[in-house]
Write a protein that binds this DNA or RNA. Structure first.
Lengths: 172, 172
DNA sequence: GCATCACTGAAACAGTCGTGTCAGTATGGC
DNA sequence: GCCATACTGACACGACTGTTTCAGTGATGC
């Protein structure tokens, strides 16, 4: 169980990561930015990898909280897209994409499995939102895989171009 | 115009980047792996950023060659997916995703504009493949944006899970 | 023969990286 | 008062970073 100071610093580091990215973060600038020291970060998180792992877990927490709130039933895709396309969530989603890509390039280290885990998380939510009679069929699996692809692809487009109008129209 | 030695080393470095990623490549290991030296790489490419830029341009060349070959008319999406899902192309696509994500996190530096450029490249190909009477309508734009999203999202899924069967079925 | 050019090797530069060492403070239970 | 526990500061270690300096090669053109 993390101490109070630990969660406090993790939260600050998370905010830092959201605006600076995770890939080439380094302890000294991070520590300076959040008013701490490398010594303390190492003490609390064991190593840099430990810190990165904690940050990724923190990001996933945000993601899972969203998925829990999104509910089931018809309209999930639209609700998910509404959330994904909100400008306020862009830093989180950029961070998410960064971690996704990294976990593919470097299957070891703290990133390991991030991409696969997130695919499964989302597929499960889409599954729960399907009508009971398709949920366990091959067609159901194909349908939710397609929905997920559409959302993810649209997100990629949006993050690159910022053109919410065009991408939003494509999802309608 | 690049010299013979330059293209030779660039090709070797490109092969190296395909299997090691681009994000945390560093000159000394790279030089050692391709039988060169940091001195020569710096001499030929000016700086590390110059080399990375050349590598990204090289990768984009591969991508554009594909798009030129893919032709137009009905069935483009299927043909594109066939290419994207070929196991032989996975390293290139992982590299592509890495550069895409990086260009979003770090809008400066050699990555700049990579994501946006690649969205436009693909949209243009899909546009050319559309029937003439939709090509310049809002519907046409929405349709090809949707096709692109589907392809990109499916690619993300495939790269993370390797489950070509499920993802392929979703695109059918 | 000689100058010019593309390329290369060795070594050093200043800087940053993650981490370890050794010390110290502050707080809370007993 | 005393001791443990949680946290923190200053500093150094070795490894690695991109880049520079200086000194050469070897081939080509005249």
């Amino acid at each position: 169980m993390p101490s109070a100071r630990e969660t406090e610093l993790l939260e600050a580091a998370y905010r830092y990561a959201l605006s600076h990215g995770l890939a080439d973060v380094s302890l000294r600038p991070l520590a300076a930015a959040i008013g701490s020291s490398t010594r303390v970060l190492l003490y609390l998180f064991g190593s840099k990898d430990g810190l990165v792992k904690a940050l990724l877990a923190r990001a996933r927490e945000d993601e899972l909280a969203l998925l829990a709130d999104i509910g089931t039933g018809p309209g999930v895709v639209a609700r998910l897209w509404e959330w994904l396309s909100a400008p306020a969530h862009r830093p989180l989603l950029t961070l998410w994409l960064e971690a996704y890509a990294r976990s593919l390039v470097e299957p070891d280290g703290p990133w390991a499995g991030f991409a696969r885990a997130t695919v499964e998380d989302w597929l499960e939510v889409l599954r729960a939102a399907q009508p009971a009679d398709v949920r366990d069929t091959a067609d159901g699996l194909a349908m939710r895989t397609r929905e997920l692809a559409l959302l993810r692809g649209a997100l990629l487009d949006l993050l690159a171009t910022g053109d919410g109008e065009r991408v939003g129209a494509a999802l309608g």
